[in-house]
Structures are given as structure tokens and as C-alpha cells.
Write a protein that binds this DNA or RNA. Sequence first.
DNA 1: TCTGGGGTCCTAGGACCC
DNA 2: TCTGGGGTCCTAGGACCC
Length: 387
Amino acid sequence: MATQRLVAHLDMDAFYASVELLRYPELRGQPVVIGGRSIDQPTLDHSGKRCFARLQQYSGRGVITTSTYEARALGVFSGMGLMKAAKLAPQAILLPVDFDAYRHYSRLFKQAVTALTPTIEDRGIDEIYIDLSAYLSENIYILAQTIKQAVYDATGLTCSIGIAPNKLLAKICSDLNKPNGITVLRESDIPEKIWPLSVKKINGIGPKTTQKLADLGIISIADLAKTELSILRLHFGGNYAMWLHRVSHGLDERPVTTYSEPKSISRETTFEQDLHVVRHRDQLSAIFTRLCHSLASDLEKKGYVCRTISIKLRFDDFSTITRDITLDASTAEATLILQAARECLRRISLKQKIRLLGVKASTLSKKNDIDLEEPPLQSLLPLIASE
DNA sequence: TCTGGGGTCCTAGGACCC
DNA sequence: TCTGGGGTCCTAGGACCC
């Protein structure tokens, strides 16, 4: 019998947009959309009043990163192209993304939570899991209130918290009472609270699987829970079928993990216009070189070296291909990364216009660990001599 | 006028070794 | 000379998440 656990999922409410509202309080209550590149910062008019760009003025290939709840009410959501969003909400305010500001507030809220409950798992800039198993005997609502208050005191921002026996359920719960809500779920609540929900509420069931399940007549989590494992096995891989079966019953053993090493570091860019391999050769070459240098400097800053270099190309029809090469020795040198990336590029036949170019480093190790593993030859000499 | 940029994990085939 | 199965690494692609 596994020991009982208690896990919280804390999700900041419309995080990027809320940080912008701290800066521009006059926008509170208005539809605001964050996203795009090369969006102008607000300007001041002659009376000192701030002037904001409107969505209808935008042209380009950006997508919405976050929107305020007022903007969502107009039908514009994260991931939507800004041009499409402009049709739905032309008067919505458009602000550029400011990752430095969001990272700053991210650190603040995580520090505030860690000070109260130290076992947290970082799930990106605006979410964390918290292991609350040590607080099983306490009043969970009051604990959740205390955490929310600490986050607010540190940042001026609200969040939503879901608390459940595992990460899967906690994640679903944090979404049930948004914004600024608390949802506590016990195992016995699963049939009533979880089963009526759509399968796509499960973290790990995306658009493809949702459609595939719908084709089988499986819409709700209850439908999924009622489906025989043998039926799922006919349509999905064995591991995925088993996972679907387990999550539909609210089962999830994953621990709250306080630290994990990065697996890859990458840089990519989508061009303003699709580029032609021959006609825009110089431009493409300059971008390729710049990406490799950025990647090398990211590796350097974070103290990693890599052994595998990958490139990614997306063509004008949105088809995407990757090529990678694994080197004999790890590196973080821009020239070696560029050389490897060029070797990958040679394996691609370039017939279509290119939309996106990316470079990725994987098979990472800490720079210091490599130094220990591969001592310079001189330090090996005494060992060899002594044998 | 569709569709960003940064990640993780899984699958699957072939090479290669034992 | 032929025939295995298992394990690991490399490469490519895809689903999914924030």
C-alpha cells in the first residue's frame, strides 16, 4: 500500500498579462494581448498619457503568448496568430513580451512559496507543483490560503491552486476554479468532479489524441475510464494505452521532483518572410551563424557542453525536418557547433522556401564534469609511468 | 493573413557488440 | 556458416506542454 500523498499545483493567473497590468494599471479591465516581435513599447503623448498599440495595427507572424480574461472573452487565446486575433478583437491592446520582467516575478513567487513549503517542482515560468504530504493532518484550505497570500504579498499577483493526491489531479484542479481559486480534491471526488470533464483536460492528452478518442466515441474522462484496456490497446501503443487507462482512473505515481538537469538547449527563429535558398543565401547564412553563436553563448552561460548538434528547418508548407550529428567529444565552441550544424545542413535537399531555422544542443554535460572525466594528458603521465 | 520559441518524452529502425 | 536475443547508441520524427 503506497503512502498517501498530497500535491498542490499552483498556476499564476494570466501571468504575463498580469505582470503587464502591474506596470500599466490603467489597462485593468480591458482586453490586453501579449505577443509578437518588434511591437513598440507604449509611447507618451503631449499630455504625458501613455499610448498603446492596438491589435488591428499589427502585421506579421507573431502569435498570442497570453491574454487577459477580458481578451479571452472576445475569443482570443494563447497560440492564436495575431493576425487572426486582430479580426476578432481589433481594439484589444497589444503589448510586446518582456521575458526579463516575467522571469523576475517568477523568481519572486517561487521564492515566496519555497519559504513556506520547500518541496517544489519548477514547471516553467508560471507554474509549480508543491509536495504537501507533510501537511496531511493540517487544514488544507488554510494552507492554500496562506500560500496564495504569500504569493500576493511578494508579487501583487493572484494564482490558482489545485490540491489532490497526485500531480495529474492537482493540475486538473488548479484549472477548475480560475482565476484566484482553490480546489481541493479527494480520491472519492473523482467520479463526480473529474469524470464529467473532457479528456483534453488531462495533461498529456493533446489535440491529436483528443480527436482520435472522439473518433472512438470517447469524449469525457468517464468514457475513457469505462473503455476496456484491450480496446485502447487496439488503437494506441501499449504504453500509451496503459497510461490512458490509468490516468482516467486518476492514477499517477510521479513524484514531485525538486531538481532536474536540462536535456537540451536550443535557438530557433521564424523569418518575417519565407527565405529562398539561393536568392537569400547570404541572409540565411548570417542567421545560421548567429543562431550557432547564440547557442554557444547559452551553453557557456549555463556551464554546459554538448555532444549532439541538431538543426531544424521548417519550409513554407510548414513541414519540418531535423538532422543531427553526435561528435566524438563534447564542446561549447561556436566554431565547432557551426561546423557540425553545416554538416547536418548538407544532408538536406533544399528545394522549398524556408520559414524557420533552428539549432539545438543535446547530450549535455556540465563543463566541470567533463574536465574531471578528461584530465589533460600531463596529469595522466604519472599514472601511466607508475604502472 | 493561419500556425512563436523554448522545452520533454516516446517510438522505431539500423548499427554494433556480446 | 548460420542463427538467436538483449542492450545501447545514433538518427528522425511526432505529440505534447508552457
